[in-house]
Simulated scan of single mutants.
Amino acid sequence: MYTETHLDLGRTFAVRLMQHLVVPTFVLDATRRVVIWNRACERLTGVGAPEVLGTRDHWRAFYDTPRYCLADTLILGRTEELTRLYDSHTVPSDNTLGLSAENWCVMPRAAKRLYLAIDAGPIFSEDGTLIAVVETLRDMTEQKLAQMALHSLANRDGLTGLANRRAFDTAIVADCQQAQRDTTALSVLLADVDHFKAYNDTHGHQKGDECLRTVAQAIEAQIFRQGDLAARYGGEEFAILLPNVDLAGALQVAERVRAAVEALHLPHGGRPDGGPVTLSIGAASGVPWDGPDILIATADEALYTAKRAGRNRVVGNAVTRPTLVEELYEA
């Protein structure tokens, strides 16, 4: 039979065990105050236990502005905050289970940015009352950086550094779905280097590659908004995705891109008119009710119109939803 003395000894042993764990660990009581901050946690964060014990200031070890840590969300029952707070996470089926999450942490005292895998597990009394939450941390920075590098290699064009065709195809499907849900316009620009075959014939393929890299840099420099995407579509053709941008806005971006490439004054040498390297650009915009194919086809048609009209110019077309009569006729 266990006595109160045995239970006290057990608690003392558990605390000492946590203190000496090689896994960074801290414990919050039911009021979210720090009751254990082990030595591995001190080494990871640069924050000593005396600074945080008895306080709710544990967030200062990981972030530069106040926010909940994973243990806080479990104690408060605020699991709806997880998507906002963490890059990835699990959601428990009930409050007796723990949480797992991953996130970049700025680590102000340690002066380094780390990607941490975090687990938070509740501790209950015999009557089912929550008495504490244990949070453990694992430094996953090297693995995350390696994963990001592999993802970049898989989605970047090796020659120009822009997104590749695969990344563009994935992005336009997602952007179309979002535009349909929000009933907002999505714009696509297709740009083609004018007389590029003649440029290669004149200067050789190595110079041709240098030309494409330079043009790609000029295009990327004109894409300012987060969420926009510039990609190498294939050969000497480039594509730009502009979510929530109507045709007027798309034409402005297209003209800015066209002018930026012309301003490079790259000698062409193979153009019949003796001019520099330029772009022809086709723009398409509208709510993509029928998915990406109609947007791309419309932009491609506008691009060829620009080429037939003399190149080094922008042409745009709107994409509209078919009327009920047109849909019935097509059916």
Rank of each mutant, 00 (worst) to 15 (best):
L162G: 01
S100I: 12
K112S: 14
R156N: 05
D201A: 02
G204R: 13
P122L: 09
T170W: 06
V193S: 06
A110G: 12
V215H: 01
V173N: 10
G208V: 12
Q206C: 12
W104T: 08
A120F: 10
L145R: 15
A120M: 07
V193P: 04
D209S: 11
D182Q: 15
L153D: 00
L145E: 06
G158M: 07
E142D: 11
T129G: 11
D201L: 06
W104I: 05
A179S: 15
D175T: 11
G128I: 01
V193N: 00
Q180C: 12
C105I: 01
T141V: 03
V215I: 11
A117N: 12
T202N: 07
H205C: 10
A198S: 12
H203T: 08
L153N: 11
H205Q: 13
H151F: 14
D192I: 03
G128F: 01
L130R: 07
V215G: 01
A120D: 08
Q180P: 08
A110C: 09
G158F: 04
E210H: 08
H203W: 11
K207I: 00
H205P: 02
A149E: 12
A191G: 03
C211P: 05
K207S: 11
T141N: 04
V133G: 03
V106L: 08
N164Y: 00
L137Q: 01
K197L: 02
L114K: 05
R165V: 01
R181Y: 12
Q177F: 10
L130M: 14
D169H: 07
Q206N: 13
N200T: 06
A171V: 00
E135Y: 01
L190K: 07
T141L: 09
A117P: 04
C105E: 01
H151A: 15
L99Y: 09
L153E: 09
V173C: 09
V106R: 04
G161C: 09
D157Y: 03
D182C: 13
T141D: 02
Q143P: 02
T183Y: 09
N155T: 11
N200I: 08
H195S: 09
A185S: 14
V106Y: 06
